[in-house]
Amino acid sequence: MKHPLLKLEPLIWLLFGQGILLGTVLLTPWVLVVGLAIPLGIVPEDALSYERATMLASHIFGRLILFGLIVLPLWKGVHHMRHTFIDFGGAERDAWVAPLLYLLATIGSVLAVVAVVRI
């Protein structure tokens, strides 16, 4: 039986699709620089000193990109995790697992708004 929450599936699919497309596009430079190059010392750490990071992030485009960097991967993540769960035999439990996963992404999205506003 379908959960009533899943009437939102077109919207969820849209966020999921953009999570793959724009999420991948935005995450690649983030992982390259913040995740690898700076910690490995390939790029000097002061590239993202507190002052410079705040300057970049508090610009309207900075905030928008960071918001996308959080929200899009979250929705791609939970939707794909739901697929995986079904593929590994969880179809019968989808009615409560799916809302739970989407709730997680919703909480993350709300926190993302707060996080980019309070920079």
Partner: peptide, 20 residues
């Protein structure tokens, strides 16, 4: 491809922590 969902979810939360 489906399993990368876990990577994306963790990345999303890591970026959230960083911005926070």
């Amino acid at each position: 491809f489906d399993l990368t969902g876990i990577l994306y979810l963790l990345l999303g939360f890591l970026v959230l922590c960083a911005v926070w």
